[in-house]
């Protein structure tokens, strides 16, 4: 990593998320650390339930009232996100950091047009006339590769295909030229062809606008192709972080090693050796992974 040349845009130290449940506390995220520079791409990898989505929601301050994340440091630029007032957070969200969700159909409001939803972020954060906002919306729709952008503004989400909707989501996230984008499995619900296009689009736009990108995924193929660095989460803890090339060349932790073995590739051994993942609550005390990983059995 090229440290000390600039300050990280996002710093997280010892982020912990505990969820109170009827039967006890669920330690969903157990003390994770990472830094993110401007223009850098971090991929958080892990299986469903490993805490990666919770982490992103915590960063955006969208966890809801019942769940209180804790951290020694969670700074966006100079703003301490955990201490910030709801007002400060609102002014950050959408304007300087924005989020792209997995399922575009559920994250777009079905009863508003694409145009309304695109312009909303700009209008909320003020200082923009409807006309400018509209112009910007058209510009961004074109940028994300949507043809006939102007006529799309008056369409409703259900009139668009999955790939188009995801592009609209990306355009929406870009409206205020954020410095940080958090994308939670942005391509999992899409065809491979569309996935490649959307990812390429994200990478191009990132290079153009110099944004930092956190991409949450369970697909190591995606990680390899776009990440600068990788954080592997397992059962709420970061088990491995490092530059992408290093991780793929020699994963030191058995879990990412197992994951890499799992990818169906020509010429690779047939057997997948990762043990079955059985959820946090089944973890033995101490957070060991011995239960699941044949390497340690």
């Amino acid at each position: 990593m090229t440290d000390n040349t600039q300050n990280p845009i996002l710093r997280v130290k010892n982020l912990t998320i505990d969820i109170p449940t009827a039967t006890g506390t669920l330690h969903a995220v157990r003390g994770i650390d990472f830094d993110l520079m401007r223009g850098e791409t971090l991929c958080i990898v892990g299986e469903s339930g490993s805490g990666k989505s919770l982490t992103s929601l915590a960063l955006m301050g969208l966890l809801g009232r019942a769940i209180r994340p804790q951290a020694d440091v969670m700074d966006f630029e100079r703003t301490a996100l955990l201490e910030a007032s709801p007002k400060t957070l609102r002014s950050l969200r959408g304007a300087r950091m924005s989020m792209i969700f997995q399922e575009p159909m559920t994250s777009l409001n079905p009863s508003y047009t694409i145009g309304d939803q695109l312009m909303e972020a700009l209008l909320i954060h003020g200082g923009t006339s409807r006309k400018t906002a509209r112009g910007r919306a058209i510009e961004l729709l074109q940028k994300v590769g949507i043809t006939a952008a102007e006529s799309r503004l008056s369409q409703f989400p259900h009139q668009l295909s999955g790939g188009l909707r995801q592009r609209v989501m990306i355009a929406m996230a870009l409206m205020c030229e954020p410095e940080l984008i958090i994308a939670d499995e942005p391509t999992t619900a899409l065809d491979v062809t569309i996935q490649a296009q959307i990812l390429r689009l994200l990478v191009d736009l990132q290079a153009e606008m110099g944004m930092a990108l956190i991409l949450i995924t369970h697909d190591l193929g995606v990680v390899a192709r776009i990440a600068d660095k990788v954080a592997v989460m397992y059962a709420g803890a970061l088990v491995e972080t490092g530059p992408t090339a290093d991780l793929f060349a020699a994963p030191s932790h058995p879990y990412p090693r197992g994951l890499l073995n799992c990818i169906p590739l020509p010429g690779k051994p047939d057997r997948c050796e990762t043990g079955h993942y059985c959820g946090h609550r089944a973890l033995p005390r101490g957070g060991g992974l011995g239960l699941h990983l044949p390497h340690q059995m």
Partner: peptide, 9 residues
């Protein structure tokens, strides 16, 4: 997308 770092999208 094969997991080969450096190839880009």
């Amino acid at each position: 997308l094969t997991p080969e770092p450096g190839l880009g999208v």
